[in-house]
Design a protein around this nucleic acid. Structure first.
Length: 774
DNA sequence: ATGATACACGAGCGGTAAAC
DNA sequence: GTTTACCGCTCGTGTATCAT
């Protein structure tokens, strides 16, 4: 994202950011414009994933070069001399145009592969990883848009990025392959229909461009908590604002829905929630009690810190869940894995290596099983299982304690991966030998921290042994430290390698010890309650200090309404339609009048019209849409209407209403019945019972407000087979009435993305018609 | 980047009670 | 005796959280 003169130019990455978090994008614009200081964020894990992503891309490039040799054309960066003698990237319009010219020239020349092709249309600038020649159309080379992604499954964000480049290639009059292609991190590839993906991309682009331009025109920085943009609530930009504004999101365990309900009731901060004395509507009593108590407790910790006596507080919630903990046994062990989730061996097929199985026994002795390659990982698992077998024989009542689900999940995965001890692992896990203390913590106590990670609980029970911030202290640190250790070993530095491993073992040992102490602390909370005192006010415990001491060429948007105009050739609706393909004519309950071709209808242009409404919370029935259907019918009836049979006034029987559900059909039927002027002759039915019905005007009602409201049924709701048939049933015009927000959000999976894209294509070119309901 | 898990909540379903 | 309204249950889905 950058400015050329007064025009804001954005990239595929910016669109991807908008898709995930519009607030983040607006904030980045503010940073760009100097309205707010840059948010420094360091996420070493993300950096590493990015680095591995570039390596993956380089591998694919090398593969193409091996295959095509000089047929691979790289489009070079445009540079200008920088102030300090180096060369800076040149983002001037002229430079971007040169880059695009080179890309077009390479496509016209029929290059086998174009690497880093550049595009610029005045508003959008992008670099496509790969354009791969794939066949020809009218003696012109046709190109497939291909991208590499480290992920192991296709994400909508990646598909939309490809669609952005495909859109540009089309704009430049070069044929594009039917499918977009992703080359994933595990060596697999996925394909996505170009046309549908581009349709969704254009929606996203149109919306994002409006958002950016609106904010650019605003004088000041974006303000948190307004509702003209979306916010993900978890990215660094959102987190910073949540902290700064003391958003209710600071309360541990608050759900998005509850946050909405709290904000509706005017409870916008953790402080307001703590001070409130009763549940707002939309939050049930039990949930409210929990959130309120959590808010109060978190504030107490903050106040203690301000007063110079930092403390972590806790309360016992459920004695019964503490009682479910197994009786302590001298054979108990406290277990923790260290792994590198991005480790791959040569064939790249399996990701992740568990390089250390660490555990602590009750006498404090620490036991390790190391693995630095795939086969060693299998042996470590065998040794670990043999250790447990032997120990269980000696201590039949022993348990393996750990924090959160990773250990159990990973053991099952490792057993499957190496085909080692599958039955034994299942027996151990199903038999309750492994005990997840995170489960117990969540169910039995409330803690004044804003996170319930193991590290955040430690002030409650680690006392003077609380970890400081030096060395390896987080999971992310450990991943990076292991990568660094392996690099040292590859460089022949065995001593350095061993030193790093010692550090990692220290970190792992501390986690095991922490799990051990946590178990004992939980048992102590139980004991503090005394025998049988399960009910009553929560008891409380207090921990130590919180911290350790120390202008686009492509028009986007639909044409505007042009009433009464007789655009003769634009009968897109009829073309897009067609009858259901299942052959045998079905019963035709809706078949009726209007058999003659329509020549004109006063006040309604032929073809497809779209009425966008704003409504909320509807899935199968929408009263506002029903009211709008009635209003549209009323506005049409009586208008001059000419067929081969002659001219007359449009009657109720010339109109057919098609709905997505029986519920909506019933709703509309009722509303039409109540309306004045004999609207009962309007035929109504669901899109599935359409059959061969025909009418001069077809009105469609989709009823659903948003994608969330239809859950798993999005593809079914938007089915092109169904609505195509409905549109095709009109002899003059079709009016589609739907929620504007139904296609606003980008679906979270590629299947739904394709469904939305196909539906948008169906409605492509529809005239925007204004709502008639008052 | 990923999977498991717990939880909340809406939809669908079946039973029961009340009303006709 | 039949219909309808309502309740509580299960089921499925989405979200938040943890871990590496």
């Amino acid at each position: 994202m950058f400015l050329t003169g007064d025009t804001l130019v954005y990239s595929a990455t910016d669109l991807a950011i908008a898709h995930e978090c519009e607030f983040q994008l607006l904030r980045r614009l503010d940073e760009r414009l100097g309205r707010v200081p840059r948010l420094e964020s360091t996420d070493p894990l993300r950096d590493r994933a990015a680095r591995l992503g570039r390596e993956h891309e380089a591998t694919v490039l090398a593969g193409y070069q091996e295959r095509f040799g000089a047929g691979v054309v790289e489009i070079s960066d445009q540079r200008v001399p920088g102030s300090d003698g180096t060369a800076d990237l040149d983002f001037s319009p002229a430079a971007l145009a040169r880059q695009q010219d080179a890309t077009v020239a390479a496509m016209h020349a029929g290059a086998d592969v174009i690497y880093q092709g550049g595009f610029f249309d005045g508003r959008f600038h992008g670099r496509a990883d790969f354009l791969v020649r794939e066949g020809e159309v009218d003696e012109m080379a046709r190109y497939a848009v291909v991208d590499t992604k480290l992920a192991r499954s296709a994400k909508p964000k990646a598909v939309l990025q490809l669609a952005a480049y495909a859109d540009q290639v089309q704009r430049l009059q070069v044929p594009v392959a039917e499918n977009l292609r992703l080359l994933l991190g595990d060596g697999s590839q996925t394909e996505h229909e170009t046309a549908a993906s581009v349709a969704v991309y254009r929606e996203l682009r149109r919306h994002t461009q409006q958002l950016l331009d609106r904010h650019h025109a605003d004088g000041g920085p974006v303000r948190w908590g307004e509702d003209w943009y979306t916010a993900c609530l978890w990215c660094d930009h959102c987190k910073a604002e949540i902290e700064r504004t003391r958003d209710v999101r600071m309360i541990w365990g608050v759900r998005t829905r509850h946050r909405e309900a709290l904000r509706q009731a005017g409870l916008k901060t953790i402080d307001a929630v703590a001070a409130a004395d009763r549940a707002p509507t939309g939050v049930d009593a039990r949930t409210w009690a929990g959130l309120h108590a959590q808010a109060v407790l978190q504030r107490r910790q903050e106040e203690a810190a301000v007063a110079g006596a930092p403390q972590v507080f806790s309360e016992t919630l459920d004695r019964a869940r503490l009682d479910e903990l197994p009786a302590p046994d001298p054979g108990d062990v406290f277990f923790d894995f260290e792994g590198d989730p991005l480790w791959v061996d040569a064939d790249r097929s399996v990701w992740g290596l568990e390089y250390l199985f660490g555990l602590m026994e009750t006498d404090g002795s620490y036991v390790t099983f190391w693995a630095h390659d795939r086969s060693a990982e299998g042996r470590a698992l065998e040794d670990f299982l043999a250790y447990l077998r032997e120990r269980r024989a000696r201590f039949p009542g022993m348990h393996v304690y750990h924090y959160a689900g990773y250990e159990q999940y990973t053991l099952r995965a490792l057993a499957r991966r190496h085909d080692v001890g599958v039955a034994e692992v299942n027996e151990l896990l199903d038999g309750g030998v492994f005990v997840d203390l995170y489960r117990t913590v969540k169910a039995s106590v409330r803690v004044s921290q804003s996170s319930y990670s193991l590290k955040k609980l430690e002030p409650l029970y680690m006392g003077a042994m609380l970890r400081d911030d030096d060395g390896v202290t987080t999971g992310a640190d450990s991943v990076l430290a292991y990568e660094a250790a392996c690099a040292l070993r590859e460089a022949g530095d065995e001593t350095g390698f061993a030193e790093r491993l010692d550090e990692l073992a220290d970190y792992n040992r501390y986690d095991c010890l922490s799990t051990f102490r946590l178990r004992d602390w939980l048992l102590a909370q139980r004991a503090a309650l005394g025998p049988g005192e399960a009910v009553g006010a929560p008891t409380e415990a207090v921990g130590g200090p919180t911290e350790a001491v120390g202008g686009p060429t492509e028009a986007v948007g639909a044409p505007t309404e042009a009433e009464g105009e007789s655009a003769p050739a634009d009968r897109r609706a009829a073309r897009a339609g067609g009858t259901p393909a299942d052959g045998a004519p079905s019963p035709q309950p809706m078949l009726g009048a209007g058999a003659s071709p329509v020549h004109s209808l006063d006040g309604l242009a032929p073809g497809l019209h779209q009425v966008n409404l704003t409504h909320h919370g509807s899935s199968v029935r929408s009263a506002p849409e029903s009211a709008e259907v009635v209003a549209q019918v009323e506005s049409l009836i009586g208008r001059a209407f000419t067929t081969e049979a002659g001219s007359h006034s449009l009657a109720a029987s010339d109109i057919l209403v098609v709905t997505s559900s029986a519920e909506q059909a019933a709703q509309i039927g009722g509303d039409l019945g109540e309306a004045d002027g004999g609207l009962a002759d309007v035929r109504i039915g669901t899109v599935d019972e359409l059959g061969n019905a025909r009418a001069a005007v077809v009105i469609c009602s989709l009823a659903a407000s948003t994608q969330q409201d239809v859950r798993g049924h999005l593809a079914e709701l938007l089915s092109v087979e169904r609505w195509g048939a409905a549109i095709g049933a009109s002899r003059w015009a079709t009016i589609v009435i739907r929620s504007a927000t139904l296609t606003r959000r980008i679906p979270s999976n590629p299947t739904d993305l394709a469904a939305v894209g196909a539906f948008l294509r169906l409605c492509d070119g529809a005239r925007e018609r204004r709502p008639r309901h008052r």
